Amino acid sequence: MTIYLHQNDLPDGLNLGAVVAIDTETMGLDPRRDRLCVVQLSAGDGHAHLVQIAKGQTSAPNLTRLLTDPNVVKLFHFGRFDIAAMQKAFGVRTAPVWCTKVAAKLIRTFTDRHGLKYLLNELVGVDVSKAQQTSDWGSVTLTEAQKEYAASDVLYLHKLKDALEAVLIREDRLDLAQRCFDFLPTRAELDLLGWDEPNDLFHH
Rank of each mutant, 00 (worst) to 15 (best):
V126M: 02
D172T: 10
A104C: 08
S139N: 10
Y156A: 03
S139Q: 13
L176F: 06
K117L: 09
Y156K: 04
F110M: 05
K161I: 03
Q133F: 12
T141V: 14
K105Y: 01
T141C: 07
G125S: 04
A151K: 05
D136H: 10
L164A: 07
V140K: 13
C99L: 00
E165R: 15
V140N: 09
L157H: 11
K105T: 06
T100L: 01
A104K: 06
L155Q: 08
E122G: 00
V102I: 12
V124W: 01
Q146E: 08
V140D: 14
A163F: 03
L106R: 12
T111A: 09
W137L: 10
K130E: 13
W137V: 11
T109G: 09
R170K: 14
Y118W: 13
P96R: 03
D112N: 13
Y149W: 03
A166H: 01
L116G: 10
I107D: 06
T143Q: 02
K101N: 02
C99G: 11
L176W: 13
F110L: 03
R113A: 15
Y156L: 02
T100W: 02
A150T: 09
Y118D: 11
L176K: 06
K161R: 15
L164M: 05
D175W: 00
K147W: 03
S129T: 15
K117Q: 15
W98H: 10
E148K: 13
K105R: 14
L120H: 08
L160W: 01
Y156W: 15
K101A: 07
Q133M: 12
K105W: 02
D175H: 05
S139T: 12
E171D: 14
E165C: 10
A131H: 11
S152P: 01
L160M: 05
T100D: 01
L106V: 05
L176N: 04
K159S: 13
V167N: 00
I107K: 06
N121E: 15
S135W: 11
L164D: 01
V124Y: 03
K159Y: 05
V154P: 06
N121V: 00
T111Y: 09
I169Y: 04
D127N: 14
D127M: 08
D172Y: 07
K147L: 13
L123P: 00
R170S: 14
E171N: 09
D136T: 07
N121A: 14
L176C: 03
K117R: 15
K101R: 14
D127I: 11
K117I: 10
K159E: 12
A163D: 00
K117V: 15
